[in-house]
Design a protein around this nucleic acid. Sequence first.
DNA 1: CGATGACATGACACCGGTGTCATAGTGCGG
DNA 2: CCGCACTATGACACCGGTGTCATGTCATCG
Lengths: 362, 362
Amino acid sequence: MATIYDVAAAAGVSPKTVSRVLNGEGPVGRKTREAVETAMAGMGYVPSNAARMMRSNRSGLVGVITGAISTADEARPTGLPELVIVQGIQRVMAERGMTMMIADTGDRSDTVPALVETFLRHRVEGLIYVAEYHRKVTLPAIPKDTPVVLANCYDDAGTTCILPDDEQGQRDLVTRLIAAGHRRIAYLTLMSHLDATRLRTAGYRAALEAAGIAHDPALVTCCETTSPEAETRLLHAAVERLMRLPEPPTVLCCGNDKMALKLYGILRSRGTRVPDDVSVAGYDNHRVIAETLYPPLSTIELAYGAMGGRAAELLLSLIRGEAAPDAPVLVRGPVYWRSSVTALGTTLDPSTTSSTTGGHNG
Amino acid sequence: MATIYDVAAAAGVSPKTVSRVLNGEGPVGRKTREAVETAMAGMGYVPSNAARMMRSNRSGLVGVITGAISTADEARPTGLPELVIVQGIQRVMAERGMTMMIADTGDRSDTVPALVETFLRHRVEGLIYVAEYHRKVTLPAIPKDTPVVLANCYDDAGTTCILPDDEQGQRDLVTRLIAAGHRRIAYLTLMSHLDATRLRTAGYRAALEAAGIAHDPALVTCCETTSPEAETRLLHAAVERLMRLPEPPTVLCCGNDKMALKLYGILRSRGTRVPDDVSVAGYDNHRVIAETLYPPLSTIELAYGAMGGRAAELLLSLIRGEAAPDAPVLVRGPVYWRSSVTALGTTLDPSTTSSTTGGHNG
DNA sequence: CGATGACATGACACCGGTGTCATAGTGCGG
DNA sequence: CCGCACTATGACACCGGTGTCATGTCATCG
């Protein structure tokens, strides 16, 4: 591969002048510049980042650690949103001329130290760790002069992090359901130990409380387990129980869109029509599911893309030496209102359907 | 960040000796090695890949160009399989100690030249281009000493490529349906200009022909368009027409799993039960859909992961200077037999359900 | 007309490793 | 006791750019 010296010789100038042309730096005569540019184009010269980095000490690289790649298309849809975070990061980094190195954990946390080491060898200017769902993580030691941002996760060390606003999200969705006239709102949660479940349940209750609706524990059930079959049975049992209540729910809120997909099949098999007999809402705005289901699913977006974007911006500001925020940055997404939820004929208070919760139609 | 000189000074040896310890190269005395290792650990030394590369000219980097990241979670599920290809590449590259740089096209082909340039600046040892679906591509000029492999696509220049065996795949699936007693097999295709559609239709006909079943053009319809609503209408109309035929089909083969998901909703709305009234088969084994649908979907896997793995292995062999295969490498996946297809009470010829088409149950 | 400063360019060291070659120590057979 | 092969280590140049400083050439101005 051609070097700056080859170009210099071909153009009849010194290597330093070629370097100046490359970087548009310092005064260079018009004719000299043209000669250099011609020579570069003629020999297909591409500068070596490695050589440049040696002296200037700026790699232009950021590292992203994720399980997005290895968890994609596994039965759980969590891997996909994770990927959207990476997309958000990518978008911002590309704008700023940074190159992204992606390392995949292969879904095993013990590979992380090696991945970090690889990044450090390449002298990345910063690191982003992306988790597959809202949770706590523990990172290996990273030199403190390398900025780190956590996306979709947090740690005990208080590392800068971006998190989804699960509490406010569920609250927005339930508030919207209440505005549509629903009073008996069931909540089929994800696994109970998850941060998301804790926060969303709090949001669910806050929305009820704000509307003066008493909380009925019989309406809240965990419907997620690690085994797909057991989960189907769990969901089945929950639906049976809920629909036989003296005052059955008018809407079933699912922990995520995938659960809603499963729920559709179960409701169909027992002859319950959506949304005529009961409404269904999801969580995530997993578009392959939400838009393709029949009827299309009302849900709330987790704004993973925005989370990635914010994480990237935050990392870049840390790289510039700016101060880190002292609290987690919370990101919210809009409600997507589709035909899986019907409006009950109740007076609608416009103040409860604010613009932040009013969604676009996909 | 500490350098090899700092380590050398701390250990009381020369930089070259530190280099030897790093690379486990040449004879180094036990006590010397230990002193160096202690010094390295003590100061958290991490070697600079850039510096190493200057002299040895091996970057240990491979570039992957894809739209996987930006197309993920868009309504079309094509972006997801693409990602599985990347996963396959990643798995093999990680095994071989290569670091993967991923560049995303942002779904616009005009960004590709810039991405290639970025990779060349980093002196990648090879490039893989991953397409979102089986199709022809045109790459920008790439120095011929940099090996390139195309995954899920091909070009006019005869660049080394890995392709899904669409024809054989559809043939395997239809052969399996025939073995289950089906004779009237409808095929709802993807858009007609796609390579996949052309090849799979050929495979569909080949399977019929091999079984001595006459091809009925009334059973084959294109059911994909660019607009989701128009597509739903198209699918609706196709189902109406097919089910009113004098001799209606006993199974509906969909162009992909997403179409099958849509079809489930349409069949439900007209009171047609799956698989009691009609069987349904997909294509892709898009697990989020195929396993979660009720009843679970019979489908055939495109083996995207395997394609990625083969692409990576092929690239590594090209990097080693081995010769390229002179024809596209075709990759097949297994049939996944789930409960969306019922067996009709016909004699089953065991010879038609070979081990290559017999699928696992997910 | 000589001093001054902006412009244009080059010489040279340096970044952090590695390849090549030289050299000092060590055990051993003749 | 000497030459020899082998082990252990270091000196030094080099990879391909960039930062620093020096130098040469004009146009401008007092």
